[in-house]
Every structure is written in C-alpha cells, then in structure tokens.
Write a protein that binds this DNA or RNA. Sequence first.
DNA 1: ACCTGAACACCGTTCAAGT
DNA 2: ACCTGAACACCGTTCAAGT
Lengths: 232, 232
Amino acid sequence: MTTRTTSRTPLSRERVMTTAVELADRAGLEALTMRNLAHELGVEAMSLYYHVTNKEAILDGIVDTVMGEINERVTMVTPPASPADWKRALRERILTAREVLLRHRWGPEVIESRTNVSLETMKYFDGVLAVLRAGGFDYDLAHHAMHALGSRALGFTQELFEPEDPGTDDPETMEMLALMAADFPYLVGMMSEIAHDDPGSTLGWCDDQTEFVFGLDLILDGLDRLIGTSGK
Amino acid sequence: MTTRTTSRTPLSRERVMTTAVELADRAGLEALTMRNLAHELGVEAMSLYYHVTNKEAILDGIVDTVMGEINERVTMVTPPASPADWKRALRERILTAREVLLRHRWGPEVIESRTNVSLETMKYFDGVLAVLRAGGFDYDLAHHAMHALGSRALGFTQELFEPEDPGTDDPETMEMLALMAADFPYLVGMMSEIAHDDPGSTLGWCDDQTEFVFGLDLILDGLDRLIGTSGK
DNA sequence: ACCTGAACACCGTTCAAGT
DNA sequence: ACCTGAACACCGTTCAAGT
C-alpha cells in the first residue's frame, strides 16, 4: 500500500513495457504519455529515458509484448493434421490473435503505425507461413495470400465506415434518414432493411465478429481454390 | 509574387482545406500543424479558428476533399451494362479511388482516424452499393460484401509487414538472413525464393499494385459465387 | 467581420547535475 | 548505475484585444 514498496522495485525496460500495456489497456492510447507512464511507475518522466531510447521504442515494445502474448496462445492451436486441414488451423490461429487484440484495443492502431517489424511479429507470420506451406501453398502463392489477408491475418480490420445504428424507434433519427434518402438511396435502403430484419444487428462487437469471420472465410475459401493451380 | 496579393485573398474554410491538402501532399501529415498551415496562408495560427472549429475539423475537411475528388473521377466509370458486369464496374471504381489516394499518401491514415463520416464518403459507398445491387446482391449480402472489402473498397490496404527487400548482392543482408533463418525458416525461405525468382519483386509501388489487385479479385470472385445463394 | 498577441496547458526530449 | 530539475522546442487552443 505504501508508495515506497512500489517505487522500491527497480525500474527496468521490462517493467516499463508491461506498465505501458496496462496503462494503454485501462486509459487508452492517448493517455500513454511519458509523464503519465512515469507517474504510474512512481518515477519522473526523465527516468524512463535511462531504460528506453524514446517513446517510439516504447510503442515498438508494447507491440512486441502483445505479439508475444498472441504467439503464446497460438502455439496451442493444433497444427494441420493433413494438407486439407490448413484452413481450419489458420482460421483458429487468426481468431485466437483476434481474441488477444480485443483485450488490447489500442493494438491495431499501434501495430499499423510501426515502421520497424518486431521479432514477435516475424515469429507470428512465420507461423502463418508454416501453415500455408503445410497446406500445399508454394512460396509465391503464400506471399500473395499474406498480402490478400493483410491485417486480417492478425485478427483485425479497420472499420472505415460505421454509421450509427438507426434506432427505428427514435423519431429524430428517422427524420434524419428521410433527409438522407434523397442523396444516399442505397445506403438508407440498406440501413433500414437491415435494421428492420434484425434490429440492433449493426451494434457492438458481436456483429463485427460475424463480419470478420465472413470476410475471413471468403478469403480462405478463395485461396483454397488456388492451391496447385499454376495461374495465380 | 508579392506577399500582399497572396495574403489579400481573404481566408475562407474552402481555402483552408485546399491549402491543407497541398501542404500534406507536399510535406507529409506531420507537417500539417496549425502554425505551418497558417504560415502557408500568410496568416497567424489563431486566424484559422475563425473559419474552422479546430484541427479535427480540418482533418474531417481534407478527407471530404479527397473523397470528393474520388467521387468526381468515379462517376466517369461506365456503370454495369448487365448484372454480370457488376464486378468489372466495381473493380474499376476501386482502382480509380486507389489512383487518387496514391496522389494523397496521407489519405488512408487520416481516413482511418476519422470518427465522423463525411458526406462525400457516404456518397462513395452509396455508389458501391448501387453497383452491388445492380449485380443482384440483396442488402444483406451487400452489407457483408462491404465489410469483407473493408478499406479495399476505397483502394487501399495497410501493409503491416513490409520486410526490406533482401538485396541478394549485399553480403551484409545475406549474413543477416542466415542468422534469421534459424528462428524464422519459412519467412526466410519465402524471402529468398521470391528474391531469387524475381529480384526486386517486393520493391515499390508496382508490386503493391499487383498484390492489391490479387486480393481484390479474390474477394470479388468469392462474392460473385455467393449471389443468389441463400447461404451467406 | 475578420485577424492577432499574449498566454496556457500540454507534448517529447536534452543536458548537466545529483545520489 | 540510476534517477532528477530545469529548460527547450514544439503542439493545439482560449481569450481579450485590435482594425
């Protein structure tokens, strides 16, 4: 309870990283400042620079940390039992990565911002490649596959366009929809039909999961069809 | 030539946005600060706040500007001549959007950071939906399709993992590869084989274009197969 | 109506100095 | 070896004041 015991534990690169992850998890990425992080560690901001070259290094480090967490979990996925089993194995790996990233919501943003690749990230992709090779992909097709998956290989997609759920019971948003209908007939058509069929379907994480899996399976099935084909 | 004529042109929201786009194009997103932008307009930073509520509004504005540019170009794509023609039309639209975004490299990053959807973005997606509907998609499948495409619908994917091209003639990187081979056998295998088959294949925009189109076609073909199917 | 100077609260970071 | 105080160069932004 005393601040002394806490601040007694000597600072270390390790402790900086794990505390940074905790801070970002709890308070969001914008709260991860050098001063905040130092305060969390019971130390002054400038002390961090003794253990870490700069903030970029911290961001590199926390990406490596979560990728390490993913790699730990992903080794528990049973490897492909046969070449035809590659799809199941990769699917499970990717959905496992997604689970970890859902506990670190800042993950995608920071991962995308990195310019240096982390060792744990390389390890993850090496594992992806291993599964593809086991499934009969030559390196060329495997290369294409990794690009086709993009960030989906890591379990996330950046949603660009997440319009509000049109709560059909709210008269104000209905009025809004009517106004928009003139300019965006298809968008309004889709939103109202989907809201009608399954109210609340565009809400929250549950639905995103469905969409993620839909897109993932579409790509995996597409790739499956290309194995052994000479045409790319 | 005199600064007077330049600074004579009265400031306006419009002029702020177009200058912001120019500045970001020329000097990168990190150069787009209120002070820099004001200087570019021959004015003090605080003057901007008279025409624009804050920096977020500027970012919203420049996204709207490039999306407007995309919409302008995309209307020139010939609409689907028949339902079966949907794929060609959508493909052309998306590749057109990509061309515009390649002239505004900051586009993807800023687009992804937006929380308010812009009108021009809605217009773009309305156009995408129009093509899908013309191709026989019901709204439910069209909705899935948009999620499956994700940022690809706008012509970009964020590359997470762009290892350096292993210049096979550089002995230093070859040594590095040998060291990595123990930990990442598949990654190194792929990199060396692809470098061998087609040296420089992972370099530059040309290759990214190939990969983008590969992934796009994979998804479009996958979707094509689902039209009219009751199973999602 | 339109623009500005001075000031504020925040950043990341350097450097000489403390123990 | 490890940590810190003071300071610097930058942010975005507010507000009262100028024309």
